[in-house]
Design a protein around this nucleic acid. Structure first.
Length: 258
DNA sequence: ATGGCGACCCTCGGTCGA
């Protein structure tokens, strides 16, 4: 079973791009972030035709928006973080049957946070606090859980193209990394780091300044798995191919296999 | 050569992203 996370940076702008990718990579579950559209604009027909007949969507106009696309039924769909009031559409969770049993999938578009000291950064910290409490509860109910999405956090120095130059800037601050560590302390582990990976593996590159061509990127898209799932993970990889296509998303898809 | 993007909308300039 394969599950992918991908910040698509507008599903309307990237629909054909996404369909081309799933045609070549027919993953079982595709978790998207930054749909930038409302549910009434969601391309259900095209996704059904592509085999994703079960879609859980939490849309929003212009900003945010997340979805879980599945080839098999999704149930117990939950939107946003229980117990945390949020104006934005940033989290969607669903239960899906996997080969060894049911799987709880929590898909998040984490807050960007702009810069330390700003109101947006304070929102990011509060949001991450709310998420942690929510996950703590979800893990109590679902032993087999995957938390994935655009975390907007580079957890370690090796997850950044310039860890020294960017030290204490957004995605790199101690506070953000502490929040990431607290998620691991809940019993989650970083699927990507279960395996030997190439040096300078990133999942996002700035559109500006020839970011991709110079591999000036960050690894901010993650897939965390609960302890019960850890031994079942067969692979986890970033697919840089679609970042080279014409008019790409600035993020690459990350796929885990069980 | 030190700047080089892209998507959105109460849309052609400002906001946001990371």
């Amino acid at each position: 079973m394969k599950i992918t996370t991908w910040n698509i940076n507008s599903l309307a702008a990237r629909l054909q791009h996404m369909l081309d990718w799933v045609a070549a990579n027919p993953v079982d579950v595709l978790c998207l972030q930054e749909l930038k559209l409302t549910e009434d604009k969601f391309p259900l027909l095209e996704l059904h035709a592509a085999g994703y007949t079960h879609c859980a969507v939490f849309g929003q106009k212009t900003y945010n928006g997340v979805a879980i696309l599945s080839r098999t039924p999704v149930r117990d769909v939950a939107k946003n973080i229980a117990g945390f009031a949020d104006e934005h559409s940033r989290v969607i969770a669903a239960t899906i049957d996997g080969p060894q049993g049911e799987l709880r999938v929590v898909n998040g578009y984490f807050v960007n946070g702009q810069a330390p000291g700003t109101e947006k950064f304070a929102y990011k910290m509060n949001w991450l606090g709310g998420l942690n409490a929510y996950l703590c509860d979800e893990l109590r109910r679902h032993e087999r859980l995957v938390l994935l999405g655009d975390f907007n956090i580079a957890p370690e120095d090796r997850d950044s193209y310039d860890p020294d130059g960017l030290r204490d800037t957004i995605h790199h601050t101690k506070e953000e990394r502490e929040h990431f560590r607290k998620l691991l302390e809940l019993g989650l582990c970083d699927g990507f780091r279960l395996f030997e990976q190439p040096e300078k593996s990133f999942s996002w590159w700035d559109y500006r300044m020839l970011g991709y061509q110079k591999n000036r990127g960050l690894r901010i898209d993650h897939i965390l798995v609960s302890e019960a799932l850890r031994a079942h993970v067969k692979s986890c990889a970033i697919d840089r191919a679609p970042r080279k296509w014409k008019q790409p998303s600035d993020h690459a898809p990350v796929t885990i296999e069980f």
